[in-house]
Amino acid sequence: MSNLLEIKNLNKVFVSRKSKTKAVNNVSLSLPGDKPITLAVVGESGSGKSTLANLVLDFIRPTSGQILYQGKDLSALKGKEHNAYRREVQAIFQNPFDAYNPFYTVDHAFKQVFDHFDFSLSKEEQRALVEENLRLVKLDPSQVLGKYSYQMSGGQLQRILVARALLLKPKLLIADEPVSMIDASLRVTVLDVMVRLKKELGISQLYITHDLSTALQISDEIIVMYKGCVVESGRAEDVILHPVHPYTQLLIQSIPIASPEEKWQDAPAAEENKNPQAGQEACCFSHRCPYYNSQCAKGQPELIPWKGDHKVSCYRYQNSPGKENGS
């Protein structure tokens, strides 16, 4: 069985009059077709996470590389096949408040879906389907339908967007920072909905986030990106609890400790120009890496197996997979 989604050596370069920016640099990943999983893509702002999401959603086209959906190249999908992709791959964005026209009730968000896609349903059947999907995301239809977006919380609005996506029976959800603009008290509810969609409806998810705690909470696998490159990947527990790459270790160290007795200090190696001798062709993390040496100037190291499915892109581990070589 082919993978649901497979990305091969994907690159995206943005060109301006003064510079070229490699937003996505030789990224490869896959989501299996035989079971639903949540794959988290984590990293700081500017790491290429959202650009990767936009490429998968076909909002922008790659400079090179392939995106395969159920074995078919996304760039080759036309007509009905491309419309099917639009239905089966749905997006949940960061800011739910921007997704609604304040002059309409939230019902309009569902109406747009029915108007755009052929459902062949009566008005009563459409209403019943909307109510069914609202209940799936833990919303009472009588409490939200007929209301305006400014009358509801961010958590409610985000779950309405999920319910709208469910109308199309998607196989893949692209969730780009879906809880970052929601009150902390409501994040658990939204994340719980995402977990249930995977377990009960079999919907795989590409979860874009900078929040390592939520990535650990709901994800099966994680890839860590820095400056467009994948620097570490593997099972969520392995990557978060046993980080190998110095950038991932830096991210973990930067998480505030929930204790008033512990002082929060910046993690080491946070300076962008710690190693000014590192050239432009060096490893993407070489300018900040505390372990920089001449080998790092050769270019971006390959993503190699560390332990099991845990992989890392770092010259420190190239010679001795599974055991730090101390270089």
Rank of each mutant, 00 (worst) to 15 (best):
D220M: 03
S122Q: 11
N273Q: 14
I252W: 07
I218T: 11
N11F: 11
C296L: 00
V195C: 06
Q265N: 11
A267H: 04
V195L: 13
S204R: 09
P256T: 03
Y69S: 10
K227G: 01
T105E: 03
I255P: 04
N319P: 02
S259P: 01
K199P: 04
A163N: 04
L241F: 12
K274W: 04
D34R: 05
I252V: 15
F97N: 01
G234W: 12
R196G: 06
N275P: 11
V41A: 01
M1L: 13
I208R: 02
S204C: 07
R316F: 06
D58V: 03
G279R: 15
A128G: 05
K72I: 13
R187I: 03
L5E: 07
H82Y: 13
M1G: 10
P260L: 03
Q143Y: 04
V106I: 15
V244S: 09
G155R: 04
K311E: 12
R86Q: 13
L241N: 14
E131R: 15
K307Y: 07
Q143V: 02
T51N: 08
K298T: 07
I304C: 07
R187S: 00
L52A: 03
P276C: 07
L212R: 04
N25T: 11
D176E: 05
S30Y: 11
P276H: 05
P170L: 12
D211N: 12
K311L: 05
Q265Y: 07
F119R: 06
V130G: 01
